[in-house]
């Protein structure tokens, strides 16, 4: 069964490019224009991975991640953060406190982003399969 990815960015062109790339790679892609729209999308269908922009109207990327981590149902969803911000974003703190797997700087390569997502979801699969085999 294809895995589901939620893309969240207020720039429609970035959203469209990433959506196009991931759909071509066989993922089911949901999109959201800001953090609140992303939470609504998650309520409808729980994604396997979330890629979110950092600076967005209404609810920004960091706010979204905080809400996700506060909810047990979404606390373990892997999150990648896209950002055009520079030095003021503390990558270590994001990883340590909010379990953000990676911070990808804009401009980014959709190809490289896809590779990274593939790797993360494959690792997740391996973990899930390992847990399953141990349970058996």
């Amino acid at each position: 069964m294809p895995q589901r990815i939620l893309l969240c960015d207020d720039d429609i062109y970035i959203l469209r490019a990433a959506e196009f790339k991931f759909q071509h790679a066989g993922y089911i892609v949901d999109t959201a224009g800001d953090g609140l729209e992303a939470l609504e999308a998650i309520e409808k269908a729980l994604p396997d991975l979330i890629i979110t922009d950092c600076q967005m109207p209404r609810l920004d990327g960091l706010g979204l991640v905080q809400r996700l981590r506060d909810n047990p149902a979404t606390a373990d969803i892997p999150v990648l953060m896209l950002t055009a911000k520079g030095f003021e974003l503390k990558h270590d703190e994001l990883a340590r406190t909010w379990n953000v797997l990676a911070v990808v700087a804009k401009p980014f390569s959709p190809r490289e982003l896809l590779k990274r997502v593939n790797a993360i979801l494959r690792m997740e699969d391996i973990e899930v399969n390992r847990e399953k085999s141990l349970n058996l």
Binding site: D11, Y13, I14, A17, A18, F20, K21, H24, Q55, A84, K85, G86, F87, E88, A105, K106, P107, F108, S109, P110, R111
Partner: peptide, 27 residues
């Protein structure tokens, strides 16, 4: 200001780079 300008510049640059790559990859 530097942060804002870099953010403002990076956003269209991100679009250009992403779409050029999609075209180059034959997507």
């Amino acid at each position: 200001f530097v942060s804002s300008v870099s953010h403002e510049m990076k956003t269209p640059l991100a679009g250009i780079k992403a779409y050029v790559e999609l075209l180059a990859d034959g997507d």
